[in-house]
Simulated assay, not measured.
Amino acid sequence: MKTPKSSVLAYRETRRVDSAAGVKRIVKAALRRLSRVEPYLYLLPALLAVAFWIYRPLLQTVKLSFYQWNLLPASPKTFVGLQNYERILTLPDMKTAVVNSLIYMIGILPFSLVLPLIIAILTDGIAKRARNLYRMLVFLPMIMAPVVVSVIWNWILHPTNGIVNHKLQEWFAVSEPVRFFTDERLAIWSILFITGWKMIGFSTLIFSSALTGINRDYYEAAAVDRASRWQTVRHITLPLLSPYIIFILMLSILFSSEWSFAYINVLTHGGPSNSTMNIYYLLWNYGFKTFAIGWSSAAAVLFFIVFGLIAWGMTKLSSRFSFYDH
Rank of each mutant, 00 (worst) to 15 (best):
K198W: 03
M199Q: 11
M199Y: 09
M199R: 07
M199W: 12
I200R: 11
G201K: 02
G201A: 08
G201Y: 05
F202D: 07
S203Y: 08
L205I: 14
L205F: 14
I206L: 15
F207P: 03
F207C: 08
S209W: 00
T212A: 14
T212K: 12
T212W: 02
G213M: 14
G213E: 10
G213H: 14
N215S: 11
D217F: 03
Y218F: 15
Y219L: 12
E220D: 12
E220Q: 14
A221I: 04
A221C: 12
A222D: 00
V224Q: 05
V224E: 08
D225Q: 09
D225M: 06
A227K: 02
S228K: 00
W230M: 13
Q231I: 08
T232C: 12
H235I: 04
H235F: 13
H235D: 09
I236D: 04
P239D: 07
P239F: 04
P239V: 12
L240Y: 10
L241K: 01
S242L: 08
S242Q: 02
P243W: 02
I245D: 10
I245H: 09
I245Y: 05
L251S: 11
I253G: 10
I253H: 04
L254G: 01
F255Y: 14
F255I: 06
S256R: 02
S256W: 02
S257A: 13
E258G: 10
W259D: 11
Y263I: 03
I264G: 10
I264W: 05
